[in-house]
C-alpha cells in the first residue's frame, strides 16, 4: 500500500478552513485540478491533462472535520482511501492534513505532490496572501 501524508499549519480558525476544505464541490478552488462536479455521494474531478477521476464520497463529518473519499471505476487505481482532516491546533488556528492510502503504491506520491500544492494554496487563500 502506498501511504502518504502532507500537512499545513493555517492561520485561521478550524471552522473557516473547514468551510472550503470540507466542501467536496469546492475542491477545484484549491487543489490542482481544472474542475469538479458533485452529485449526491459521487464526485468527478477533471485534471489538466484530460483525465477524469470518479470518486465515491465516503464521509463528510462536520463535527470531526474529516472528509474521506475513494477513487472508483478506475482502470489503474485498485485500492484508494483519501482523508482530509482539519484539526484545531489549540491556539485558535488549525492544521490541515491530507492523507492517501492506495494501490498502485507509486501513484500515492503523485497525489502527495498535488496535496502539497493544494494545501499550500488553501493556506494562502485562507491567510489572504494569494
Amino acid at each position: 500500500m502506498g501511504s502518504i501524508r502532507r500537512s499545513q499549519h493555517i492561520k485561521c480558525t478550524p471552522e473557516k478552513a473547514w468551510e472550503i476544505i470540507g466542501d467536496p464541490s469546492r475542491l477545484h478552488e484549491w487543489f490542482p485540478i481544472v474542475s469538479c462536479r458533485v452529485e449526491g455521494a459521487k464526485r468527478w474531478i477533471h485534471l489538466a491533462n484530460g483525465l477524469v477521476f470518479e470518486e465515491d464520497i465516503v464521509l463528510v463529518d462536520n463535527s470531526m472535520r474529516r472528509f474521506q473519499y475513494t477513487i472508483v471505476n478506475n482502470p489503474i487505481v485498485t485500492q484508494h482511501l483519501g482523508t482530509v482532516d482539519v484539526i484545531d491546533d489549540g491556539r485558535g488556528e488549525c492544521i490541515a492534513i491530507y492523507s492517501t492510502d492506495m494501490k498502485p503504491n507509486v501513484l500515492a506520491l503523485g497525489i502527495g505532490a498535488a496535496a502539497n500544492h493544494g494545501l499550500t494554496k488553501v493556506k494562502k487563500i485562507l491567510e489572504g496572501t494569494l
Binding site: 490542482p32 485534471l47 489538466a48 491533462n49
Partner: peptide
Amino acid sequence: EPLLDPFQLFAETRMAA
C-alpha cells in the same frame, strides 16, 4: 522534474502538454 506528473504541477510537463 518528475516525469510522472498527472496533475501537471511541473513546468517540464506543462510545456510539453
